[in-house]
Amino acid sequence: MQTANIDQIIDAHQGKPSALIHVLMEIQHVNHWLPREVLKKVSQKLEVPFNRVLQVATFYKTFSMIPKGSHEVHVCMGTTCRMRGAGELLDTVKDLIGVDVGETDADMKYSLENGSCLGCCSLGPEIIVNGKHHTRVEPSKADDVLKSYA
């Protein structure tokens, strides 16, 4: 955990309750998850009640209260991607990483998520890793995509 970095983010918004979501997003971005201790610190420094912080942190899918891997892998399961074979692609990715949707592998390297339409219907099926779109991914190409992040 990059404690110094997290402290910096929190300190920059000290005493500003309205910055709650912004702060949580930044911490989620650098740390990939929100440990309870960090949420307590956010609550103190931003002067937001802890139950409010907890409520916000559990409400949005962006935030994770459990550790995530360093690469976030999203496989689109929107209607178009599904029709273009995303089901098979997701199964392949599951096999390659060795985890189910919502889980992280033992090396803390990849976290797998799916989504219902991630935006590039005309280029589906797609995998998004750390925000970068990999389009027209055949199941056989999934390995290459993941390996480029190894």
């Binding site: 307590k40 009640p49 802890f50 139950n51 409010r52 907890l54 409520q55 559990t58 409400f59 949005y60």
Partner: peptide, 21 residues
């Protein structure tokens, strides 16, 4: 006292006592 919180969203939403408080 802020001892109870709503957690999660949608169909999974529920109340939780915060043990620390």
């Amino acid at each position: 006292k802020n001892a109870i919180a709503f957690v999660d969203c949608g169909a999974k939403r529920e109340i939780n006592f915060i043990p620390e408080i």
